[in-house]
Write a protein that binds this DNA or RNA. Structure first.
Lengths: 245, 245
DNA sequence: CGAGCCGTTGAGGGGATTCAAGCTCAGTGG
DNA sequence: CCACTGAGCTTGAATCCCCTCAACGGCTCG
């Protein structure tokens, strides 16, 4: 998918944010990828690009929201508190994912959204999507694709991260973190043990024991705090053995 | 939300399926609830209302689908096979829910969909939604609501049915089954022990032990095969004690 | 009646939790 | 400078919940 270069003569008249969107390396993967330069020009003014530090909250569950967000870089986690009063992380989102989509329906946010790493976002107000929906039906299709991707992520979470032995779940989490935010060299964000527990339903002690074991086995090289390097081959091998034995 | 009565003089000229849709008790909750009589008249011809017996498969994971379905009555389960080769049930759908929505994006079905009970559906071809999308923007909004509901169901599944002790998960499942397909008297569909295992990640033996215990405690009255009556008060009380102790 | 499926129950073992102690490290203030 | 503190992590020992393996009963169906 080619992203057309904007002619120079157009640029002086172009809003800075529109230029930023045009140049955005995510554009082909992003919600507004279907828009041309004119389309971007029309919407530029309302789009902000906020940043959050690790641990900061983007929004809370139950809040009435007026915007959706695209993740430009970083990882977001979605938390909720169970009926039993325990904190549970139900999903992660990374680069290119759309979050807070329920705001488009004027529904309150379903979960609490928190930055796991330094986070860069695009903030897109609801009224913008509403207005654009009529003019650009292709964008609605993009939107529905985002919804389906989120559903797919959540169902995969159920299938892969909530079943089986603790060690298998943790290996699967490492795999997911690698494909979500890992770089070429296998450098990943490694959650705090308590957050691993909230994701995989285990105690911090169990999480710690398994992480330590994987470190001793060479699957994981810890780079405290909050980072690690995974040996992808060793990870695959460990998963194979896990599923076999 | 009122569903307008169709004048009698209109009916002889009306396609039988359009009459059925108009009279459908689900209409206000269904995808085409926003359409008026004329709108229904236009789309009637392509809508079928298939029925499936318990255990029959609606579609398989990976298949290319050309239709979405609305559940008129019964319960559907979504299964997939994990990377480790185990069968996992990741979500349930009931009356009023939309299933197979990924077909609208021309994506293959994500999961296998299987009837848990006798099932009545509305089959809505993709081309119909495509055509209607332009004419009836309100319907796209309905569609996005369905997507969000499915996402919400999946995230709730993660939060409530995959964490905590086996007994708590099973109690929560009974609660979910009651609100999904239960009648006034607490009559519910009770899955086979193997399916309980695939939902809650436990063995059939553990499922059986807990079901038996709940029967002895009076929470559950078994009505074999595949049915039970829940004592809602006792269920609530059992959950309270579970979360307390 | 025997075969097969489904469900139930028991006994033993293993993996995760619980309870507890000690470690590292950053921030604070004497 | 260094003890002090608290948060996060690690490790050990004992307990318990759930899994594994096994046997058996009810039911349907050929």
């Amino acid at each position: 998918m080619l992203t057309p270069v904007i002619p120079l003569y157009l640029q002086p008249a172009t809003h800075p944010q529109a230029r930023a969107c045009s140049a955005c390396e995510l554009r082909s993967r992003a919600l507004f990828g279907v828009l041309d330069a004119d389309g971007l020009q029309r919407i530029h003014a309302d789009i902000a690009t906020p940043s959050l530090a690790e641990g900061e909250r983007l929004y809370g569950g139950g809040e009435a929201g007026a915007a959706v967000y695209t993740v430009r870089s970083g990882i977001v986690r979605f938390e909720r508190v169970t009926a039993g009063g325990h904190r549970r992380i139900v999903r992660l989102a990374g680069r290119g994912d759309l979050i807070g989509q329920e705001a488009l329906l004027q529904w309150p946010y379903a979960d609490e959204a928190i930055a796991c790493t330094p986070l860069q976002l695009c903030r897109i107000p609801r009224h913008l999507i509403d207005a654009l929906g009529d003019a650009e039906p292709q964008m609605l299709r993009e939107l529905m694709q985002r919804w389906q991707r989120a559903l797919e992520a959540s169902e995969s979470w159920v299938a892969e991260l909530t079943a089986g032995a603790a060690r298998r779940r943790l290996l699967k989490l490492l795999q997911a973190l690698d494909s979500l935010g890992g770089d070429d060299e296998g450098l990943i964000w490694l959650p705090r043990r308590e957050d691993i527990g909230a994701m995989l339903d285990m105690t911090i002690e169990t999480a710690s024991r398994i992480v330590s074991a994987l470190r001793r086995e060479g699957v994981l090289e810890l780079l405290p705090p909050r980072a690690a390097r995974v040996d992808r081959e060793a990870l695959q091998a460990a998963l194979q053995r896990q599923d076999a034995g």
